[in-house]
Amino acid sequence: MSRPGAAAASRASAGGARPAGPSRPAGGRPRSSRWAALAFLAPLLAYLLAFYAYPLFRNIELSLHDYTVRAFVQGDAAFAGLANYRDVLGSDAFGPALRNTLLFTFVSIAAQYAIGLALAVFFRDGFRLSGVLRAMFLVPWLLPLIVSGSAWSWMLNSDNGIVNAALQAFGIGQINWLTSPDWALTAVIIANVWLGVPFNLVLLHAGLQNIPDELYEAAALDGANAWQRFWRVTFPLLRPVSAITLLLGLVYTLKVVDVIWIMTTGGPGDSSTTLAVWSYREAFGTGLPDFSPAATIGNLLIVIALAFGLLYLRLQRRQEDV
């Protein structure tokens, strides 16, 4: 005959027993799950360190030393501090390069966005052969930039270019697109706009597909015409997509080198030299590369792009708060 106390103890022991499981740290997540999460993050962290953090660190290090070709090979560059930044900011070439960069960037992204938005609205509802036409608009985006730059150099040639031939058919005289200081920057802007329109078209067209048709039907029942439907329905609802499209276009346009270099090499003189072209010319465009000023100019471009990125995040946060 068992004792009541022993039976109670046996039941308590049986009820309180728990199967053994993975150890849990103070945060509540099993330690094995944390190791699995770190294993999945490791390739991304390695990629960011190898292709973002280290190049950025190296670029800053280049700008703070006096790297010539000999010093670059031997690794004994003298420390220069902020002397390279003072030299670049105080250079006679800095003012024109900054002005050209601002004009080239903002005119390009404004024209790309306006044309891309107009085409996106045009293709929104779909019609016969709309898919084929949209695909044709992607051709500039698919071509290698050296091919695009060479094609525009031929078309804008002063003597036998197709653009001047078309203008002369309308009674407009010859324009020296690539050899005149007054027209060189305009020529590279035209080529860059042509290259960037497909990117804007794709993103904005995708954004338009997320706007419900019921909103347009309700606006039409309220008597809104096509312009009012665009301004009061399409444009406000497309604002988040527009913001990221403009930001990506800004970052891309700030660093454009190849098209400008192929068409004008930044000339004549410095009339089409942007900060990116100036950086490339210092590093690779002369017979005697000077890596430190090139890295310095590149860092200034990074700061400009970072400033606009932070502005975008601030505007997005303010919009979410509203």
Rank of each mutant, 00 (worst) to 15 (best):
L129V: 04
S13T: 15
T253D: 02
A294P: 09
S13R: 15
A110P: 06
F106T: 07
Y47E: 03
G16W: 05
P55I: 06
A114R: 01
L238M: 11
P212Q: 03
I175D: 05
W227V: 06
Y52H: 12
V163Y: 00
L301I: 11
T68H: 01
D270H: 14
L254H: 02
I211A: 10
W177K: 06
I115R: 02
I172H: 09
G75P: 10
E214R: 15
V197D: 12
R314H: 13
R124E: 15
D258R: 11
A9T: 09
L64Q: 04
R3A: 13
D182R: 06
A206R: 04
F137N: 04
A77V: 05
P25E: 10
V202D: 00
S33P: 14
M155H: 00
L301S: 05
D125R: 03
G90D: 13
G149F: 06
R31H: 15
F170D: 08
R317F: 04
A111P: 05
W177Y: 08
Y54E: 14
S32P: 10
A224L: 01
G126K: 00
A110I: 01
Q316V: 03
S279E: 09
G171N: 14
I262M: 01
F122T: 04
V132C: 11
V233E: 00
I146Y: 02
I244M: 07
D321R: 15
S242Q: 07
D182C: 00
L102N: 11
Q74K: 14
A166T: 14
A206M: 01
Q316E: 14
I146K: 08
G285D: 13
T273Y: 11
L221Y: 08
R318N: 02
Y113Q: 13
S33Q: 12
I297M: 08
D270L: 14
I189Q: 01
T234E: 00
S63R: 05
I60L: 03
R134W: 04
A110E: 02
A243M: 08
L178P: 07
Y280I: 05
M155D: 04
P289Y: 03
P289S: 08
L102Y: 03
L178V: 00
V163D: 03
N164Q: 01
P181D: 12
F284W: 05
R134E: 05
V193Q: 02
P43Y: 03
Y252Q: 11
